[in-house]
Design a protein around this nucleic acid. Structure first.
Lengths: 148, 148
DNA sequence: AAATAAAATGTATAAACATTCGTACCGCAG
DNA sequence: CTGCGGTACGAATGTTTATACATTTTATTT
């Protein structure tokens, strides 16, 4: 039953602003589970759920996933970028109009080794790389992102 | 003095396993700051520091990478979006021409609870929400973003 | 199946944390 | 100056969460 309960909890906090364990107890009760706060506390620990401050006056539980975050960036990038080309140590990435900024931030956040800096216009990103070697490495990474 | 204190706190939690606000008080004291737990609580809120479960029996404070990125997202969003309106479980966000896509991606990336899906045209975003309740919550969040 | 070990949970309580309320300290307009 | 609006803070208190210990449930061994 623990498994099912955990699933419910995860689902619940993903789809609602949950800020107290009591709310989870209530939700579980409505789904036929009858557990105490101590159990929820342990569940939260096991599920590695975190409590985050959001906006100015909200606190909410959230699933802690650094990996999930990476995926997020990749998603942003692949949804924004169209193609990439390299000359010397510069890579030029073409994006859909208006998305270069977002794609650029996503790219930056990947912390690619050998990447020196980026600048974004409306639909184009310039990526400055350390040297030709790094350039081919990075464009390889970018192209593999573009494929999915 | 608050600025300096905040810096110390961030530095501290990045480089140590900090699991209680008391530890922060102690550290600050050693650096010449004399504040109470109430202040630390407020600092943690302002700095959007989270408490994460780590390993099997550790809890520690950490800087939420997600939130840091959130700031980026927020920036993209607020620079693109103009206004928002809701009917039933749909929110319509008006953006500057050509920016809806970027704003939409930013919005998606915030992982707002109750948000089911989004779609962007050139200057408009449709946001589908789970129900009316979620809708009002989400438009509240959007409006608070638009204010700054 | 009885005996034993291990996991899951509840109870009660302690610990950790957030918040309310009051005060002090600005910066500034009148 | 004087009063107003805002920020920062401590003390006290309320709220929320974690945990020590006891108990029940489930699995494992013999």
């Amino acid at each position: 039953m623990k498994k099912k309960r955990h699933e419910l909890i995860l689902d619940f906090i993903k789809n609602n602003n949950v800020s107290r364990q009591e709310e989870i107890i209530k939700m579980l009760f409505e789904h036929g589970f009858n557990v105490t706060q101590a159990t929820i506390s342990r569940d939260i620990k096991e599920l590695k759920i975190i409590k985050e401050h959001f906006g100015k006056n909200d606190i909410r539980y959230a699933v802690s996933e650094k990996i999930g975050n990476d995926d997020n960036y990749k998603m942003i990038f692949t949804r924004s970028a169209i193609s990439a080309d390299a000359t010397m140590n510069i890579i030029v990435v073409k994006c859909y109009s208006g998305t270069a900024n977002a794609a650029c931030i996503a790219l930056d956040s990947m912390n690619l080794p050998g990447l020196v800096g980026t600048i974004a216009g409306d639909d184009t990103i310039f990526v400055a790389c350390k040297d030709v070697n790094a350039t081919s490495h990075i464009i390889g990474t970018i192209n593999s992102l573009l494929k999915d």
